[in-house]
């Protein structure tokens, strides 16, 4: 079901947390609200499910105006960060609770619980108590409980934050699989760009109560709207370098590179360049000289910090098995076609 948030405003006392935010989630789409803590992403989520009231604007599920409806009548499934399972009930009763509240008959409840347990792969756990389950299993139960009454919208509030690294990887694809199988419209709140990029159709990157950019993950990565977006997406992160333009070259602290054709003639004399680690290295020639000040081995790849003479650090990621070592003086090149240029106030050029 299509979700449409129009001119949504939220204030806490004197403080305006979110000012006239607009967001449309298409039916069956999974969208991520991504941003640093305090950016208003959780506030937005809790407004959509009805825990917070709106101070302005409107919210539509499909054609239905739900702006003033209480949570109980919105038909929204929510998965909380700590799963919020009911500790005194068995897993079966946990999942059945939303149906029991709707006073469905026992046979229907049993059938629906079995179906959803099958979907999230927990049929053997139904008679246990939440405390007897691992984090990943509790997560599956929480998903089952949120989905069992076929909600219009599924909301996920940092669902992976409490899991260890390996489970997180597994649940990432599991949540996406379940979302695709049910075809439900979903909103994921996260501060982890990898989760957002790997699970969602589109990402809404938020900062200070505003959506800075709303785009497909790869598009957002390749074409960030501004310096904040460029810095937020990408792991290892992008490096920013002060540069000045002399003729048709960018002059960096220790070296120079050619201005690419698409930027030619559009750049101011002083600017910042954003260089992603995969576009800096010996395979792009030479010209930027510095010293390797940090090496991080990641198995398949190595991450190098190259410190230029003026102190600027540019990160580079290289396939492992190369002979660069800490302290080496290197002169590497930058892939000029993929350099991102930003003006002094952070806008993309």
């Amino acid at each position: 079901m299509r979700i449409e948030l129009k001119n949504f405003t939220k204030t806490f006392g004197e403080l305006t947390v979110i000012d006239r935010l607009n967001l449309t989630v298409e039916s069956g789409e999974m969208i991520a609200l991504l941003g640093p803590s305090g950016c208003g992403k959780s506030t937005t989520l809790f407004t959509i499910c009805g825990i917070h009231r709106m101070n302005g604007g409107s919210l539509h599920f499909g054609d239905r105006d739900v702006s003033d409806l209480p949570s109980q009548k919105r038909n929204v499934g929510v998965v909380f960060q700590n799963y919020a399972l009911y500790p005194h009930m068995s897993i079966r009763d946990n999942i059945a609770f939303p149906l029991k509240v709707q006073k469905e008959d026992a046979a229907t409840i049993a059938r629906k619980v079995d179906e959803i347990a099958e979907l999230v792969h927990i049929p053997e756990l139904l008679e246990r108590k939440p405390a007897q389950l691992s984090g990943g299993q509790q997560q599956r139960v929480a998903l089952a409980r949120a989905l069992v009454r076929k909600p219009d919208v599924l909301l996920l509030d940092e669902p992976l934050a409490n899991l260890d690294a390996k489970l997180r990887l597994e649940m990432r694809s599991e949540i996406r699989r379940i979302q695709l199988e049910t075809g439900i419209t979903a909103i994921l709140v996260t501060h982890d760009q990898i989760e957002a990029m790997s699970m969602c159709d589109r990402i809404a990157l938020m900062k200070g109560g505003k959506i800075v950019q709303l785009d497909k993950p790869d598009e957002m990565y390749a074409n960030p709207a501004d310096q904040f977006v460029a810095g937020f997406l990408g792991n290892p992160p992008i490096s920013f370098v002060d540069a000045s333009v002399v003729g048709d070259t960018f002059v960096l602290g220790a070296g120079e590179i050619a201005v690419s054709a698409n930027l030619m003639g559009r750049v101011p004399s002083q600017l910042q360049l954003g260089v992603r680690p995969e576009y800096f290295g010996p395979q792009f020639g030479s010209g930027v000289a510095g010293k390797i000040t940090f090496v991080e081995t990641q198995g398949r790849e190595n991450l190098y910090d190259v410190t230029l003479q003026n102190g600027t650090v540019i990160r580079s990621i290289q396939p492992s098995g190369q002979s660069f070592a800490l302290g080496d003086q290197v002169s590497w090149g930058i892939d000029t076609d993929n350099v991102l240029a930003f003006s002094a106030n952070g806008d993309r050029i």
């Binding site: 499910c49 009805g50 825990i51 949570s71 109980q72 929204v76 499934g77 929510v78 909380f80 919020a84 009911y86 609770f97 939303p98 509240v101 709707q102 409980r145 949120a146 009454r149």
Partner: peptide, 9 residues
């Protein structure tokens, strides 16, 4: 909150 979302008063 989960209970309220599940539709309970």
């Amino acid at each position: 909150m989960a209970g309220v979302q599940d539709g309970a008063s």
